[in-house]
C-alpha cells in the first residue's frame, strides 16, 4: 500500500508542470476558514462536484488557513470565486475592481452575532447590551477570526458603541480564537468567559446536540446585518468563455441539494449585489479595519 502511494505521488509530482498548465483551465474557488476544517473540506468538495457538473469545467476547492489568505488568493487571481463573509467580501471587492457579489444565503440578508457566556459567570441573557455592562466588564472575551464579520467586526462595533471603550479596555483579556467553532468550545470550556460568534454555527451545533447548554448560553443577540456571499472575479468570462459568470450565478442560485445546503447551513441561495454590503463597509471604516 505504501509502495502504491509512493508511486502515485511520484507520478503526480513528475507531471506537476503539466498539471500547472492544465490548472489554468481549472476553475478554482476558496472559502473563509470560519469553521472546523474537516467540515469545510467536506462541504466545499460537495460544492466543487456540483459546480463541476453544472459548468462542465474542472472545479477545485482550495482550503486556506486565514481570512486574509482567502482574500489574497482571490485578489491574486489564484481563485476566481470565493465564499466570503461580509467583511472579507467587501475587502476583496475593493481590491479587485469588477468583482461582484452574485449570491447570498437566504439567512445572510439578516445575519446575527450571538454573545455567549460561560454559565459560571452568572451573566443572564438580556435584550439590551447596555444592561449587561456590569456583568461583562472585566471579563475575558474572545472574538473569532480577526477578519470575521460576525465574529469580530459586528461584536466589536457594538461593544464600542455601547460601552464607549475599545474591547481590550473594557474586558480584562481579549483573544482571537480563530473561528466560530473554536469560540464556542473555548467559552464552553471556560478558557474565555464570554465570546461572540456566528448565530448559524450556534444554531447548527445546538441542533446537532454538540453544545453543553449547562456550561454555555446565549446572552445577547445583535441586530440583523448582511453577511456571507459568493463573490466572483470580473474577468472570468474572458478566461472561461462568454456568459460564464451568469452560468456560475445560476448554478449557485439553483443549488437545491438539501444535504449540501444543510451543511452551510442555508435554506437556499438568492441573488446579491455589491450594494447589499454597504452597511458592512461603513461599519468597518468606522472602527478602522478599512481605510
Amino acid at each position: 500500500m505504501a509502495l502504491n502511494l509512493i508511486r502515485k505521488l511520484m507520478v503526480s509530482s513528475l507531471f506537476c508542470f503539466g498539471a500547472a498548465t492544465a490548472s489554468a483551465e481549472t476553475f478554482v474557488f476558496t472559502a473563509i476558514p470560519d469553521e472546523d476544517e474537516t467540515k469545510l473540506v467536506e462541504r466545499f468538495r460537495g460544492v466543487a462536484d456540483y459546480l463541476s457538473n453544472e459548468l462542465n469545467v474542472d472545479v477545485r476547492y482550495i482550503p486556506v488557513k486565514s481570512y486574509a489568505a482567502a482574500v489574497s488568493a482571490f485578489r491574486n487571481n489564484q481563485v476566481q470565486l470565493a465564499w466570503f463573509g461580509g467583511l472579507s467580501g467587501v475587502q476583496a471587492r475593493r481590491l479587485v475592481p469588477g468583482s461582484e457579489a452574485i449570491a447570498q444565503g437566504v439567512e445572510d440578508q439578516a445575519f446575527e452575532t450571538y454573545f455567549i457566556a460561560n454559565t459560571n459567570t452568572g451573566i443572564e441573557p438580556a435584550d439590551e447590551l447596555s444592561s449587561l455592562e456590569e456583568g461583562l466588564q472585566g471579563k475575558t472575551f474572545t472574538f473569532g477570526s480577526k477578519g470575521s464579520t460576525s465574529g469580530r467586526l459586528m461584536p466589536e462595533f457594538y461593544i464600542r458603541e455601547t460601552f464607549g471603550e475599545q474591547p481590550d479596555e473594557f474586558f480584562s483579556r481579549v483573544g482571537f480564537s480563530g473561528n466560530h467553532t473554536r469560540t464556542l468550545r473555548l467559552v464552553e470550556a471556560g478558557t474565555y468567559e464570554v465570546g461572540a460568534l456566528n448565530f448559524q454555527v450556534w444554531e447548527k451545533e445546538l441542533a446537532d446536540g454538540n453544545i453543553d447548554t449547562d456550561a454555555v448560553q446565549v446572552i445577547w443577540r445583535t441586530p440583523a446585518y448582511p453577511d456571507y456571499q459568493w463573490t466572483i472575479r470580473g474577468d472570468v468570462n474572458e478566461r472561461f468563455g462568454e456568459g460564464f459568470k451568469q452560468r456560475v450565478t445560476e448554478a449557485l442560485l439553483n443549488l437545491d441539494d438539501q444535504a449540501l445546503l444543510e451543511s452551510f447551513p442555508r435554506s437556499g441561495f438568492i441573488p446579491a449585489s455589491n450594494d447589499d454590503y454597504e452597511p458592512i463597509s461603513k461599519t468597518a471604516e468606522e472602527i478602522g479595519i478599512l481605510d
Binding site: L9, M10, S13, L14, C16, A19, A20, S23, A24, V28, I62, A73, R75, N76, N77, Q78, V79
Partner: peptide
C-alpha cells in the same frame, strides 16, 4: 523539487 506539490500557478503581475 518534484515533490513540492503543484500549488496554484503564479500570476506575475501580482
Amino acid at each position: 523539487p518534484f515533490f513540492l506539490g503543484e500549488g496554484l500557478p503564479i500570476v506575475w503581475s501580482n
